[in-house]
Amino acid sequence: MVSYPSLFHRSFFRVLPLLMGLVLAIPQPASAGDVPQQGGSGRSSGHPAHNGPADHPPLEVPEGRECVQPAEWMRRNHMDFLKHNRDMAVREGVRVKDDSLKNCSTCHKSREKFCDRCHAYVAVAPNCFECHDYPK
Protein backbone atom coordinates (compact mmCIF):
# COMPACT_ATOMS: atom_id res chain seq x y z
CA MET A 1 0.00 0.00 0.00
CA VAL A 2 1.32 3.39 -0.90
CA SER A 3 1.34 5.78 1.96
CA TYR A 4 -0.05 9.19 1.27
CA PRO A 5 1.87 11.84 3.11
CA SER A 6 -0.53 14.27 4.58
CA LEU A 7 -0.31 17.55 2.87
CA PHE A 8 -2.55 19.65 5.00
CA HIS A 9 -2.10 19.91 8.68
CA ARG A 10 -5.06 18.29 10.39
CA SER A 11 -6.11 21.47 12.03
CA PHE A 12 -6.59 22.96 8.57
CA PHE A 13 -9.73 20.92 8.14
CA ARG A 14 -11.08 21.97 11.49
CA VAL A 15 -10.52 25.60 10.70
CA LEU A 16 -11.87 25.37 7.15
CA PRO A 17 -15.59 25.22 7.98
CA LEU A 18 -15.07 28.03 10.44
CA LEU A 19 -13.41 30.12 7.75
CA MET A 20 -16.18 29.34 5.29
CA GLY A 21 -18.73 30.33 7.91
CA LEU A 22 -16.92 33.59 8.50
CA VAL A 23 -16.80 34.37 4.81
CA LEU A 24 -20.53 33.76 4.56
CA ALA A 25 -21.23 35.92 7.57
CA ILE A 26 -19.17 38.90 6.47
CA PRO A 27 -21.58 41.81 6.76
CA GLN A 28 -23.12 42.86 3.51
CA PRO A 29 -22.45 46.38 2.31
CA ALA A 30 -24.72 48.66 4.24
CA SER A 31 -28.08 48.85 2.60
CA ALA A 32 -31.14 50.77 3.55
CA GLY A 33 -32.45 47.84 5.56
CA ASP A 34 -29.59 47.91 8.02
CA VAL A 35 -29.76 51.48 9.21
CA PRO A 36 -28.81 51.59 12.85
CA GLN A 37 -31.02 53.46 15.22
CA GLN A 38 -29.97 56.92 16.10
CA GLY A 39 -30.19 57.75 19.76
CA GLY A 40 -32.01 55.82 22.44
CA SER A 41 -35.75 55.67 22.73
CA GLY A 42 -35.54 58.33 25.42
CA ARG A 43 -34.25 61.09 23.22
CA SER A 44 -35.90 60.52 19.89
CA SER A 45 -39.43 61.72 20.09
CA GLY A 46 -41.11 64.36 18.04
CA HIS A 47 -39.27 65.80 15.08
CA PRO A 48 -35.68 64.76 14.66
CA ALA A 49 -34.80 68.40 14.13
CA HIS A 50 -35.59 69.09 17.77
CA ASN A 51 -34.18 66.04 19.40
CA GLY A 52 -31.17 64.03 18.47
CA PRO A 53 -27.57 63.46 19.27
CA ALA A 54 -25.58 66.64 19.53
CA ASP A 55 -23.77 66.25 16.20
CA HIS A 56 -26.83 65.17 14.26
CA PRO A 57 -27.33 67.68 11.47
CA PRO A 58 -30.66 69.48 11.77
CA LEU A 59 -33.29 67.96 9.51
CA GLU A 60 -35.85 70.10 7.82
CA VAL A 61 -39.19 70.15 9.59
CA PRO A 62 -41.80 68.62 7.30
CA GLU A 63 -44.59 70.82 6.08
CA GLY A 64 -48.16 69.92 6.64
CA ARG A 65 -50.14 67.21 8.31
CA GLU A 66 -49.17 64.03 10.01
CA CYS A 67 -47.08 61.41 8.27
CA VAL A 68 -48.81 58.36 6.78
CA GLN A 69 -47.38 56.43 9.72
CA PRO A 70 -46.38 57.63 13.19
CA ALA A 71 -43.08 59.49 12.95
CA GLU A 72 -41.33 57.19 15.45
CA TRP A 73 -42.35 54.13 13.44
CA MET A 74 -41.29 55.78 10.21
CA ARG A 75 -37.89 56.70 11.56
CA ARG A 76 -37.28 53.08 12.34
CA ASN A 77 -38.99 51.40 9.41
CA HIS A 78 -39.25 53.76 6.44
CA MET A 79 -36.67 51.78 4.46
CA ASP A 80 -38.53 48.50 4.79
CA PHE A 81 -41.79 50.32 4.26
CA LEU A 82 -40.61 51.88 0.99
CA LYS A 83 -38.91 48.70 -0.17
CA HIS A 84 -42.03 46.67 0.50
CA ASN A 85 -44.17 49.18 -1.35
CA ARG A 86 -41.67 49.25 -4.20
CA ASP A 87 -41.84 45.49 -4.64
CA MET A 88 -45.63 45.51 -4.36
CA ALA A 89 -45.91 48.26 -6.98
CA VAL A 90 -43.43 46.83 -9.45
CA ARG A 91 -44.17 43.14 -9.13
CA GLU A 92 -47.81 42.93 -8.00
CA GLY A 93 -49.08 46.15 -9.52
CA VAL A 94 -50.37 47.36 -6.13
CA ARG A 95 -50.01 51.10 -5.99
CA VAL A 96 -51.01 52.97 -2.85
CA LYS A 97 -50.76 56.65 -3.60
CA ASP A 98 -50.23 57.80 -0.01
CA ASP A 99 -47.43 55.31 0.61
CA SER A 100 -45.35 56.18 -2.45
CA LEU A 101 -41.96 57.87 -2.48
CA LYS A 102 -43.58 60.58 -4.55
CA ASN A 103 -45.99 61.32 -1.73
CA CYS A 104 -43.12 61.77 0.77
CA SER A 105 -42.14 64.89 -1.14
CA THR A 106 -45.47 66.60 -0.47
CA CYS A 107 -44.29 67.23 3.09
CA HIS A 108 -40.57 66.55 3.09
CA LYS A 109 -39.86 69.11 0.43
CA SER A 110 -36.13 68.77 0.13
CA ARG A 111 -34.10 65.66 -0.38
CA GLU A 112 -30.88 67.40 0.64
CA LYS A 113 -32.25 68.86 3.85
CA PHE A 114 -34.10 65.76 4.93
CA CYS A 115 -33.17 62.43 3.39
CA ASP A 116 -29.53 63.04 2.51
CA ARG A 117 -28.57 64.65 5.80
CA CYS A 118 -29.57 61.69 7.88
CA HIS A 119 -28.37 59.12 5.34
CA ALA A 120 -24.97 60.79 5.33
CA TYR A 121 -24.93 60.88 9.11
CA VAL A 122 -25.63 57.15 9.45
CA ALA A 123 -23.41 56.37 6.44
CA VAL A 124 -25.89 54.60 4.22
CA ALA A 125 -26.23 55.18 0.51
CA PRO A 126 -29.64 54.12 -0.73
CA ASN A 127 -29.67 54.51 -4.50
CA CYS A 128 -33.38 55.33 -4.96
CA PHE A 129 -32.60 58.85 -6.14
CA GLU A 130 -30.24 57.74 -8.89
CA CYS A 131 -33.30 57.08 -10.99
CA HIS A 132 -36.36 58.34 -9.12
CA ASP A 133 -37.24 62.00 -9.17
CA TYR A 134 -37.34 63.84 -5.84
CA PRO A 135 -37.17 67.58 -5.23
CA LYS A 136 -33.62 68.66 -4.47
Partner: peptide, 8 residues
Protein backbone atom coordinates in the same frame (compact mmCIF):
# COMPACT_ATOMS: atom_id res chain seq x y z
CA UNK B 1 -8.51 16.05 -4.01
CA UNK B 2 -8.79 15.65 -0.28
CA UNK B 3 -9.49 11.94 -0.56
CA UNK B 4 -6.44 11.49 -2.77
CA UNK B 5 -4.33 13.16 -0.12
CA UNK B 6 -5.65 11.56 3.00
CA UNK B 7 -8.45 9.07 2.52
CA UNK B 8 -7.61 6.85 -0.47
Amino acid sequence: LWSMFQYP
